[in-house]
Structure formats: C-alpha cells, structure tokens
Simulated assay, not measured.
Amino acid sequence: MLHRDTVDTTVLPPAERFGMWLDLVARTSAPMRIRSAHADDFAARADFLDLGPIQVIKYHYPSLDATRTPKLIRQSDPELYVLALTTDGVGTSSQDGRRSEIRAGEFTFYDGSRPHDVGHHATEPEQGQATSVIAMIPHAALPLPPERMATLFGGKMSGREGIGGLLAQFLLQISGHPEQYHAADAARLGAVGLDLVTTMLGRHLVAEDAVPTEVRRRALVTQVQAYVHRHVGDPALSPRVVADAHHISLRSLHRLFEAEETTVASYIRDLRLARCRRDLADPALRTQPVQVIAARWGFPDKAHFSRVFRAAYGTSPQAYRESTCDPARIVNHPASMVTSSPAD
C-alpha cells in the first residue's frame, strides 16, 4: 500500500493534545500560528501521503484558525502552493486582500510563501470536527505562469463538477484508501493529481492555453477513463457516446488514446471483462447465472460474452468460475477510480 504517516493526538491525555498539534505544525515546512477554542482537548488527526511531485494530507480537527506571518515565512519558505478541499465544516481563506468562505465540496488555493489567514470551523462547534484534504504543490512543479497565479489566491473553486469534481474524487479516493495502491504507484498517482490540479487552475485563470498541451491531454484522458468507469455497465456505452459526452469529435477521442497503448473500444471492453471476471470469482455471487453477471457489465449477448471472455483469458466464463472455487485462489480487489487496473 502507499506509505502513510499519521499523527493522532488522541494517543495523549486531553491536556497535552493541543501542544502535540502545535509541535507538529512547528515542524512542518510551512509553519503557522494556530488558535483554537478547543485547546483543552484538541482531538485531531493528520494522514500524510507523499506522491512524488505533490504531498496529500487528510485532516480531522476541532475548529481552528491559523495565520502565516511574514516572520514565519522568513524563518521557513519551502515555496509551496496549497490547494485545500473542505469536506466537512466551513472554511475561510484570506490572502492578498481577497477573502472567501469555503463550504464542503469547494476548494481554496493560496501561496505558502505569502502571508495568509485560514480558518476551518465544524458545523457543530461544541462536538463536531472539521475535515479537509489538501495538496501541497511545489512552485516549480506547477507548469502555469507564476505571475498570473495571484488572481486565484484566497478564492474558491467548485469540487462538485467538471475537472474540479474529478480532482476532488481523486483526492478523496487516494487519501481515503491508500491500501488499494502499491507504493510503486505513488509517483504516477502524484503526476495524475498534478495534471488535474494544473488543468483546474488553468481553467479558472480563463486561459486554458496557459496549460501545457500534454498536461491537458493527460487530464482529459483521466476524465474520459473516469466516465467509462461510471458507465461501464451501460451496454450502449461506445466510443461515440464517450466522445459526445466530452464534446469532442470521435477522431479527437481516438487521437487522445494513441499514447495510451490501447483504443477506446478496447479500454471499455477490457474494463467490462475485468468486472465480469471479478464477479465470477466472488463467492458471494456464486448463485448468480453467468449471463446475469455479463449483462450487468454491458454484455447482453451471452454468446458474444463467451467469445470475448475466452479470447481474453483462454477459458470460458463457466470454467473460470469453477476454477476459482478454492477460496484461497479468489482475488477480488476493488477497482481503482482513476486507473483501469485493479488497485491493491
């Protein structure tokens, strides 16, 4: 699984928890001054994932406010951008004279090298917790014009639809289920996340041409793949349907996949077959007819399904199911939301 470092203040008595959190913040590369009405019992947790070019952190904490002052910046300036997704509670972000209120499902973006104020308050201040997922991005890793980024600082962006929705889903999936990925996947996952961040920020700059062409291509591929995952059970799903859903021509869609070592049709077929194979090996589905499983994943024609399954795996669906009767041989890992391969 991906390597995760965790800080959990509840391992200490209530009176010592806020001090532990302050020590954690003081040791970070971009320390801040923290204030909280819950200093007498600060039950908080932070999970850190290093993904090559970016770091992802999942936070749970009581309501707090934080300030990064010029003095703290002079003491330590790692030159990082911060993109924060509020997942519960209400956040505030203020930088360069711009202030925004951030609701659950929204992003805010700011520069750790400039003074700023952020706050995050639980919707039930006395007993609830505020939660967020943030991405720490080195200035040098973000391929956008630095001189134009200031227009985004302290603002908010939606994480509910389009590229923002896909990025939010990506961050939640990675931070919530690191056990579904290999440690060797970290850098690749970080590159996917960086592409999505770049594309979302580029669109909010109202200058998508500022986003490098290859970054735009990879982000669109990720968006297309996520769409296929969501609709793979629809027998009508086809390259034409996918192209129309993304407002591009069929020819453009095929060009998009030229660097992926597969075609769109093959990607859809292989994902459907992988889902069928997974369900055929699932002992909980042992009583379901093969045809029912095939139809659930977009193969309404039993004969066609048998042919393509045999071509892919060298055996018939029924024979494969029978070969997995031994529980020790069953592999049934959940599929990743961002790749076509099962993640474990």
Rank of each mutant, 00 (worst) to 15 (best):
186 A>R: 04
186 A>K: 07
187 A>E: 15
188 R>C: 11
189 L>Y: 07
191 A>E: 15
192 V>G: 05
194 L>E: 02
197 V>A: 04
197 V>D: 02
198 T>N: 05
198 T>Q: 02
200 M>H: 07
200 M>N: 08
202 G>I: 01
202 G>S: 03
203 R>F: 10
204 H>F: 14
207 A>R: 14
209 D>F: 05
213 T>I: 11
213 T>G: 12
214 E>Y: 05
215 V>G: 02
218 R>V: 05
218 R>Q: 10
220 L>H: 04
222 T>M: 02
222 T>R: 12
226 A>H: 05
231 H>E: 07
232 V>G: 01
232 V>M: 06
233 G>P: 01
234 D>G: 00
234 D>Q: 00
235 P>V: 12
237 L>D: 01
243 A>C: 00
244 D>K: 14
245 A>N: 07
245 A>G: 00
250 L>G: 14
251 R>C: 03
256 L>T: 05
256 L>S: 01
261 E>A: 12
261 E>D: 15
262 T>Q: 11
265 A>C: 00
267 Y>V: 06
267 Y>I: 08
271 L>T: 08
272 R>K: 13
273 L>G: 10
275 R>N: 13
275 R>C: 06
276 C>W: 06
276 C>P: 10
276 C>E: 09
279 D>L: 13
281 A>F: 08
282 D>C: 13
282 D>T: 08
282 D>H: 13
283 P>M: 12
283 P>S: 08
284 A>C: 09
286 R>F: 14
286 R>Q: 13
287 T>M: 10
287 T>S: 15
296 R>F: 00
296 R>S: 13
298 G>D: 11
300 P>H: 07
303 A>E: 14
304 H>G: 10
305 F>G: 08
307 R>F: 11
309 F>I: 09
